[in-house]
Design a protein around this nucleic acid. Structure first.
Lengths: 333, 333
DNA sequence: TTGAAAGCGCTAACAG
DNA sequence: CTGTTAGCGCTTTCAA
């Protein structure tokens, strides 16, 4: 920068000002000379000192648990779009539901003085998140609530959405509706399970059919295989998230069963090819892009107004019915 | 940090050393005192000055064109795993095939002094990439080559893979094999098209069936609808990437056609649910995770050895045959 | 409108 | 092994 100043015959302060927001406070003439010198010398601005001085970078962190899950993929897109539009850069970290990895990522983001962090935490009581909050860096909880912390939150109404899915199955006549769930330590999952259980109670469905998988393909598949090995097979399966649902479908194929003829299937989260599957899959669709975009917006608002009241955004999910859910199959004759 | 130093009764240099790599060069006793003071004061390290001093951050950039494309999703995971393992943070940017947005992202990464950048460029002659290279920041080209630049590159053998896909269709008896292609300005696409055309020549297939879409669902769908409106319909379709293929499948459904009974379909890039589609989809499968991981490795190697010889890594893609490709349908009778 | 100068909070060279 | 000290390259007072 001092080279540029010398070449333009001005001080470095003038160069700095000429390069800052549209060169306010610099005479057009000097500005021209500075820009010419910048071009001449092929000067590349360096944000590192600027960040240091500002004690913050124009970067937001996004911490998710599975980048290959299309739910998070869409969330990433929404958040990145907003960040980009507002002149922020997005740092992405993938935790694979590993609390230690999450803590490490958050620590790094804190050390890099991210302007703020959107986090789908591995657990409601994550030590990593608590530590991050204690640094004073703005945090937005996405998809998964943070227990006992007063942070902005963006979620869908998981309980209601799950209830509606199971209610639909009940309305088709199903009485043995199983749920392939997940680990209960994240709120989104436990809320879906709660919605399922409320529907089971309200509609007098059979109890004891809530099984816990992980949130991935392998767990969904394994759990379903075990579930269908039971003497009295469920007539419908509600699956807790998209990866898990893919596992359910694989398990059905493994056993040579078809939906909805043998078992009805409905999954939480839409899948990009859900309508092209065999059979097309009924799902609970979340407004994924919106979730990511709203989370980033909430975060950037808080970056600008640290003392604004804490907000909780709850979006609605919707039922998308396709052929994988049908009436109760009649027993083989 | 000076607070910590005061609390521990040492100099800030000692604090710095105690906090640096496992506290080498500091007596255990002082180290203890420093760590105690850090805990006591709830001190959060700040990397910003460190980065500034080092004139670089431990961050690598990854610039892709579509985060919702499962190909890139897997690439991201591979790259992020490697980066994380080596203590780097990953900055992700999505360009949507927009050269201007790409240039902006790369400029930001240069200004933030990323240690290096992996880029799937929007074009072989991207001005943004050229400028980035001129800053001296290490660059690795992923999936798409950079024309006239001497940079490390990670790609699959697109030409051969496309050739094999079309050859397979020819071996099933197809003579009217269409290709739903893409914009020719990225190497991966033009190479696939070249492989298609070589196969067309070698096997005496009908010419003039290479149509260009974009690389997204909408383009694949539109192009296919037009293609199938032709008086003499192709008996097989080869689609250039995963999103495009989903478009092809939607178009078939729109027209009430089925693969492979009406048209055979094979797509470049596997889809997570490819085996669950109706019918299960034949694809050219790329080693996506490996591509991302290798790109990150190549980049970090160059960060450490800027003068190492430039490498080009070419991985093989493989044909995954499922029911969507079958023999030539007999004309309706 | 411009320039001089004082940091931002670390790291590392150097001296003890 | 420890402390003193000189920056890293910007931004931003403050004074002219």
């Amino acid at each position: 920068m001092s080279d540029v100043a010398r070449a333009a015959g001005v001080s470095i302060a003038t160069v700095s000002r000429a390069l800052a927001n549209a060169g306010a406070g610099v005479s057009p003439e000097l500005r021209e000379r500075v820009l010419a010198a910048v071009a001449e010398l092929d000067y590349h601005p360096n944000h590192l000192p600027r960040n240091m001085r500002a004690r913050s970078s124009r970067t937001i962190g996004l911490v998710i648990s599975d980048i290959e899950n299309p739910y998070f993929t869409a969330v990433v897109r929404g958040a990145e779009d907003v960040a980009h539009r507002r002149g922020y850069t997005m740092v992405l970290a993938n935790t694979d539901e590993d609390a230690e990895r999450e803590a490490l990522c958050l620590q790094t983001m804190a050390a890099e003085r991210a302007a703020g962090v959107v986090v789908a935490s591995t657990g409601q009581h994550s030590a990593g998140v608590r530590r991050l909050i204690s640094t004073g860096i703005p945090v937005v909880a996405l998809d998964r609530r943070i227990a006992g912390a007063n942070v902005d939150t963006v979620v869908v109404d998981n309980e209601t959405a799950a209830y509606e899915a199971v209610r639909h199955l009940a309305s088709l006549g199903h009485r043995r509706v199983a749920m392939v769930g997940g680990p209960g330590k994240v709120s989104a999952i436990s809320e879906r399970e709660a919605g399922y259980e409320r529907a089971v109670r309200d509609h007098g469905l059979e109890r004891g059919l809530l099984w816990h998988g992980d949130l991935r393909e392998a767990g969904g598949r394994r759990t379903t295989l075990e579930l269908l090995r039971e003497p009295e097979r469920p007539t419908a399966i509600f699956s807790v998230n998209s990866m898990s649902t893919i596992g359910v479908l694989h398990a059905l194929r493994d056993l040579g069963l078809r939906a909805p003829d043998d078992v009805s299937v409905i999954g939480f989260d839409d899948i990009p090819t859900g309508d092209l599957l065999d059979p097309p899959l009924s799902v609970v669709r979340q407004p994924t892009y919106q979730l990511g975009a709203r989370a980033a917006e909430l975060l950037l608002r808080r970056v600008q107004e640290p003392d604004a009241p804490v907000q909780e955004v709850v979006l609605a999910a919707s039922l998308v019915l396709r052929p994988s859910t049908g009436p109760v199959p009649r027993p083989n004759d």
